[in-house]
Amino acid sequence: MKKDLKKLALELKQMIIEAAHDAGNQGVHIGGALSMTDIMAVLYGELMNYDIQNPSDKNRDRLVLSKGHDALGLYVALCASGFFSKEELKSNYLQDEGFLPTHPVKNIEKGIECSTGSLGQGLAYGIGLAIAAKKQGRKSRVFVVMGDGECDEGSCWEGFTSAVHYGLDNLLLYIDLNGLQSDGATSEIMPIRIAAALDAIGWNVMEADGHDVDDLLSKSKKAMQESGRPSVIIAKTVKGKGVSFMENDNSWHHGHMNETQYEQAKKELAEGGHDGNQ
């Protein structure tokens, strides 16, 4: 049965708010986790081939979260997909020596493909996975999720050129274009015309509404038909998506909610989530 992706995306947002609240006074990268939930819903709810009974299956699809600081967005997707329970999420997320610290630690049994957090390293890793899949004749696909701020890193550009040169049509990159990075707007910190640049390098470039699961799904499926070159979906998103006071407010890049804010976020999401635009 086809999953209701919109419902799943909303559920992931609610789980993010709950997990952030459970973490107490600790700071959480809530904004960037919320901006990527619709992408995660489309990947884990529909596109990706994985088996929670056999998480190390060689033929599984791989997801590499390059923007590792937003790991909570991955953790809730893995939890919702059955890699671990909600109780495990609660007892491990940001808990001393738990398996879910702020930045992800490779743990195939729990669905975490790569240790990330040092920005600009996920794409190269994904390229390696994609080359291995091709050489071994596996149908595994590799999905990499990057942030737009992350694209400042020079190592990303090494990945951009080589993925095209190696013709990796089994690689699909998502850039979560929420327009904000730690110190402010990407347009002010380090503006990059990413779509034009990737097109010039030779990527199959598609732009999508990063909060429209149908748009993300149809474009992803189209991208997966592309032959001979990698595809990128530049997903226009809103940092803090779904919670009115978090949307486009960069103090939620890394922050924690007081009880009033938590109650309001919970209420807004229970009503379907705030629908602000970038």
Partner: peptide, 26 residues
């Protein structure tokens, strides 16, 4: 030739790619 890939002058990328390949048995 099937066992070799030139990484260009991209050492950081090369190490990341090698790591991805190592994850799948190389």
């Amino acid at each position: 030739p099937e066992k070799f890939l030139s990484a260009g002058i991209e050492e950081q990328n090369m190490v990341g790619i090698a790591s991805g390949m190592a994850a799948d048995g190389y």
